[in-house]
Design a protein around this nucleic acid. Structure first.
Lengths: 245, 245
DNA sequence: GGATAAAATGTCACACTGACACAATATTAG
DNA sequence: CTAATATTGTGTCAGTGTGACATTTTATCC
């Protein structure tokens, strides 16, 4: 309690930004300039910000978007996490930081996941990276530090939330088809679902409005379009789906 | 990124320690020396510790116990949280810290909840407090800073976990009765459940072993004793209860 | 030792679930 | 242009889980 330095930490956050495109769940990643490793968009928290505000700022910078659905899910605080991977050295090489003293401090990161409409995102690299791209889950490899672990935890949390919350409004365009919504659920859950049972169940939640339009131009029979019933959707977000007790 | 001080934060954690006693859910609280406000047991994170290790240390100090069931649930990072309540001044009065400079920094706290066997705890106050006591949920009042908010979030999380995880092994003695287990669920959920349906459901999870003993000495008909089937209990902890998809 | 209060067990109707069949329809291929 | 095709819309049925409630059993109470 007596020494300042003992409590000096680098407080950062990392965002797992999920988007849905071409029937695939994708994550927005940055490629680092020197090592070419991939990283989750993140940044340091300023002293006058809450973590949530900082996450909004990071998201705005990387995607150009405001008002994104954001959810804090875990703090990664292993004192060795910055050593776990030579990637910290990249930062050093890249000219940021103040030399060894800066890097000898520990790095603490809070994980957020974000759900966004793929088409509305305008990906922008940051100072340390030369690419900012969407990657489908299976394509993701060669992540820096413990970012694989952070990503996995985000997915795990998202799956869990799926069981008691509606999801989709932030990931899909305004109008969408039942097969699209199902595919979204399937990719998040990592398993396939029965088409007819899925429809019955999701409709029973009353969070969808069936439209009179059909989605033409696709292959074979044209599916109906749906939109979310925001009133019920938001109610469900707050109250959650039943829960088994 | 250029200024050290800009990234100086006080990294702490607060523990919501739940125990179950006399059919009530209780929380272990400290009473502060000067303001007499109540506080969750907490502490600063040392530089060489993960948050989990720091939480274990805090729990050991306050309860005398090791190997406690611990779960990180939220980070409280509002820059104003230390100002929100004059309680920070208490710390100042109490002689800790290095004066204004120290208190002008922000306080970030990660919330953990812990589940413990009430009878195994030996409550010990810390340097800033003169009491360390169990309080039933309804008795809790006059908490310092944002500790009420932290407590509420812990409860909310615990309730959620109840729907997809077994709970009880850490809160109840080795042998317990069905009415005791039900009362635990009822207090966590804050509502009463049908006795017969509860039993049917909890048994269907296969996490209990029915013993041949009965709990004598109570009032009227003696209930059977149960113990947890650790093998199935741990399996359920990992895999979770079904989930609706 | 009978009254009492709680525990153990059982029943029944209904909702939900998983597995699967068949009809309808827009596109595609010849 | 027409038939084949892949996909969507709708429906059924049996098995399981759920909520509501009645009856029997049993250790204490008086």
């Amino acid at each position: 309690m007596t020494n300042f330095k003992a409590y000096l930490n680098h407080i950062s956050l990392d965002c797992v930004i999920f988007g849905f495109h071409e029937n695939q769940l994708k994550v927005l990643l940055l490629q680092m300039k020197y090592t070419k490793k991939w990283a989750l968009p993140g940044g340091f928290v300023k002293k006058e910000e809450s973590f949530e505000e900082a996450a909004e700022r990071v998201l705005k910078e990387r995607t150009g978007m405001d008002n994104i659905f954001l959810q804090q899910f875990h703090v990664f605080s292993d004192p060795k996490r910055s050593e776990m991977n030579p990637a910290v050295k990249d930062l050093e090489k890249s000219g940021s930081g103040e030399g060894l003293d800066w890097f000898s401090q520990r790095f603490i990161s809070t994980g957020f996941y974000a759900l966004v409409d793929f088409h509305k995102v305008d990906p922008a690299p940051d100072f340390f990276s030369d690419k900012c791209e969407w990657k489908a889950l299976e394509e993701i490899d060669n992540l820096m530090m413990d970012h694989r672990q952070i990503l996995d935890k985000a997915l795990e949390t998202l799956r869990l939330h799926l069981t008691y919350q509606p999801i989709g409004y932030n990931l899909l365009p305004k109008k969408f088809t039942m097969p699209e919504l199902q595919k979204l659920y399937e990719t998040i859950l990592g398993k396939s679902l029965d088409r007819r049972n899925f429809q019955r169940k999701i409709l029973s939640y009353k969070i969808l409005n069936k439209l009179d339009e059909r989605k033409k131009g696709g292959a074979y029979k044209a599916p109906y379009l749906y939109e979310f019933n925001l009133e019920n959707y938001n109610k469900a977000l707050k109250e959650g789906f039943s829960g088994s007790w």
